[in-house]
């Protein structure tokens, strides 16, 4: 398992990511407030940690959800990330922001989990999409436009299926770029990869998704 390390990103990279993440998500807590909170936690004030978790819970879970595609797994992963943060706080030097640390940890944990899932699928020939809804349930959906919802859900399933065919790293890079809007430079820094490698992974992911979804649109039409 890849252990998230706070020190694995250079200060320059960390600063770049921090600035970008802060701007993108308009964090309510600035660096000074975060430092005060960290000092409180280090002095044994557990309520400080609770504030920290509450502050980041939604964003961390959404990221995990987008990476893994399943809410239950995302919640478990978010919990694990916060527990690791709690363990890491005494040694946390403050070179990077907490949000950056959490982003990196969640992404790496998600990649690990995706790898384990793929291995499990190969070993046990398990169904790929256990969470797929029952078509009968979909058809009996009482909402106003079940036909449109059905199409949307089918498209979502197809996307999930196409994403599942990507390698864990490609999937993570695509999700971080396409859905989270992180620049490739930041993704490279988060994952400790070269920018060229990230570009290459993104291209392969996009090519694969385009092919899968083009087939789907042809089937639909």
């Amino acid at each position: 398992m890849i252990m998230p390390k706070e020190t694995c990103v250079s200060s320059t990279n960390a600063a770049t990511i921090d600035r970008s993440l802060t701007e993108r998500y308009a964090q309510t807590m600035d660096a000074a407030q975060e430092q005060i909170l960290l000092d409180r936690i280090r002095s044994g004030d557990e309520t400080g940690f609770e504030i920290l978790v509450k502050q980041h819970a939604d964003r961390v879970t959404r990221l995990a959800w987008r990476l893994l595609g399943r809410r239950d797994d995302a919640e478990d992963l978010a919990q694990e990330a916060f527990l690791r943060l709690h363990r890491a706080l005494p040694k946390f030097r403050g070179d990077s922001r907490i949000s950056t640390w959490l982003y990196r940890t969640v992404t790496r944990l998600a990649i690990d989990q995706m790898r384990r899932d793929r291995l499990r699928q190969r070993l046990f020939f398990s169904r790929r999409h256990v969470d797929d809804p029952d078509p009968v349930d979909l058809a009996s959906d009482p909402r106003a436009n079940p036909a449109r919802d059905l199409r949307t859900r089918e498209a979502m399933q197809r996307l999930q299926s196409a994403l599942a065919d990507l390698s864990p790293r490609q999937r993570a890079i695509f999700t971080l770029r396409h859905y989270e809007g992180l620049p490739l430079k930041e993704i490279a820094a988060l994952l400790d990869l070269g920018e060229g490698t990230v570009k290459s992974h993104l291209h392969r992911a996009v090519t694969s998704l385009r092919k899968e979804l083009a087939d789907f649109h042809e089937e639909r039409s």
Binding site: T61, R62, W65, R66, G69, R71, A74, T152, A155, M156, L159, H178, Y179, V206, L209, R210, L213, A214, H217
Partner: peptide, 10 residues
């Protein structure tokens, strides 16, 4: 193609 990718509401 890319814009036709469904959003993934979380």
């Amino acid at each position: 193609t890319m814009q036709a990718l469904p959003q993934r509401p979380c």
